[in-house]
Design a protein around this nucleic acid. Sequence first.
DNA 1: TCACATTTGTCCGTATGTATC
DNA 2: AGATACATACGGACAAATGTG
Lengths: 240, 240
Amino acid sequence: MEKKISDHIFEPVETKQAYKEVSEKIKTAIFNGTLKPEDRLPSEIALAKQFQVSRQTVREALRLLEMSGFITIRRGSAGGPIIEKTVLHAVSNALLNALQMQNVTLNDITVARIETEKSVLRYAIKNADQADINALSENISTAKRKVEQGITVFPDNVEFHILLARASKNPVFIVVVESILALGAEYISRFGLNFEASKKTLAEHEKILKAVIERNTEEAIRLIKDHLLRIGHRNKSTTE
Amino acid sequence: MEKKISDHIFEPVETKQAYKEVSEKIKTAIFNGTLKPEDRLPSEIALAKQFQVSRQTVREALRLLEMSGFITIRRGSAGGPIIEKTVLHAVSNALLNALQMQNVTLNDITVARIETEKSVLRYAIKNADQADINALSENISTAKRKVEQGITVFPDNVEFHILLARASKNPVFIVVVESILALGAEYISRFGLNFEASKKTLAEHEKILKAVIERNTEEAIRLIKDHLLRIGHRNKSTTE
DNA sequence: TCACATTTGTCCGTATGTATC
DNA sequence: AGATACATACGGACAAATGTG
């Protein structure tokens, strides 16, 4: 008698659906660099001819790629499917969907942000190069200028945290931070919170950057914790 | 002249496409509980009649929902679109796609895992209730039994980390941990690593659980760090 | 301003494969 | 084994959007 093996070692063999195969082929062409960002794919009719399938099949394949974030589709003349630079927005969307099916509170998001960004900071301080520091400094001075001109600096303040994640040199951190930020933004817009107090945020960002430059890990972590706690606690009145 | 405002304040208004509207309506029905997991949606033809659109339009809407993880579609009689319990697998897929377009190393994954799970442990120790402890104990004893019978315990060992995340009571952590785990699994399968040394893994899990039960945060964190480092370092020879 | 070409969006009808009873 | 119900796939057609001359 054979030794009994646990279930789920082999996935069931799925009979290939044409639209999935088409989508896979285009996807691998993107991964291996044959298709590059900003490139335009052939039109649906041309693709149908190339793959020897119907237009409907091509369209369903394109729907998959669109939802996965690989392409966007423009209508009209000179339109068509265009390769995207990143698929990060798709991650945030998926994360958002997942969390919408759970019960997620603003506090949950804040806690996760604090913990994640604390880790990010440790690695950012370890791995940041001059380009990262410059980008962060640039971000703050741009934001300052905008505040004086009365322009909203919300996108810049979000960008600050993404730049920190980049400085960690770990793509996993970057994706996770961007996703949580997108999640927070969605949460905020859904409950109609406002975007004031950017000056305070800006001042705190400046202090954090200073600590990063000085490689002062303890101070930086203390600052980001307070910073994110403030944003999280003032949930109904203030945010990034 | 108008004051120049930063770009991307307003998104372009998209003229509604039927397939997107159909997909949205089904999605909101899922969110507000009208449609529950395991429910079967009407057939494509019936949906086409209800929404007053063509079958092709319905199919494209279903493609979106399928890719987002909300439904799976079974062919044949008594088949049709079925509501899924969670959309977590969609998150992992999206994350995977995103990271495949970057340059991610096993070390990046290991670092992110360690940092994330350290945070998870802190909150798990704070928030775990008896049910969580029971589930974790159950997991270990099940795995032990399987090891004795020569059955692979890889899925159980992965489950252990998910149970830890659940014990933290923070859905964001759960999603992030599951995603990173899926990412690691994908990475492993892609490079054909093996699944041995489960006994060592099991023993370490047992120690971690003990520390959690004793509410010994420092010890638990030290253990999980060593545990994940070992898994990460022995990348080409050993894993979970 | 207007007409035209291109490309996606949508519809219909039909045929075939596939799983269930 | 046969009937049924469903997804899958094809082809042809027209509408709507969009850029170009």
